[in-house]
Amino acid sequence: MTGLEVENLSVRYGAVEAVRGLSLEVRPGQIVGLIGPNGAGKSSTLHAIMGSAPITGGDVRLDGTSIVGRRPEEVARRGVALVPEGRRIFGELTVDENLRLGLAGRSARTNGDGLARAHELFPILREFRSRQAGVLSGGQQQQLAIGRALAADPEILLLDEPSLGLAPKIVDIVFEALTQIRDAGLAVLLVEQRAQRTVALADVSHVLANGELRLTLGSKDAADTERLVAAYLA
């Protein structure tokens, strides 16, 4: 099968079990939301997929092949791109250099033009191409972080709280971009705290609490606030 499969995944830091037996799937052309309170294990899941968090059980498969035990750079080069929490822009490099760093994850796997797609999706990245990334606003930096991930022309896009600290208008831009990215055929796994918006956007959303899957919702369930709240409090 194509896409990303996470099966019975466990992540443990020392004595702390951050993720317990989590299973989910993301198919091409699909947005899967992963929501839940702080410390639920959302970021740990993304880092485990990338190979930068210690997996203690379960499997992660990319297009049917296990990628457990691969180094982060290998996972990236196989077509999984991460937009990390807090954006992690290289502030001393220019916007263009940041985008070209994204090319590091391209390898010989693809000949698609990720840079062009990033520029197309976020025109400001072309406009400000020779500016230092550090002087961009938070919203612009988030666009750069997503553009940088897209530069690698990935099959799977992982986003770790892309709306964190952004003005509502900017959040609209980011979420609209995610829709376009999905429509271009990517598999998107979106970690968010904005539960209602995420559920509305995503094809499927999973609620995570204490490292465990609590609830799975479809996009029609966005209005069902009570179920959401119940899952958070459970």
Binding site: S52, R71, A81, L93
Partner: peptide, 18 residues
């Protein structure tokens, strides 16, 4: 570019495929 990025933030650089 990869060397400069690695010097600034190795972890993120690796996540990008460096």
């Amino acid at each position: 570019l990869h060397m400069r990025a690695a010097a600034m933030d190795f972890r993120t650089a690796r996540l990008l495929g460096v």
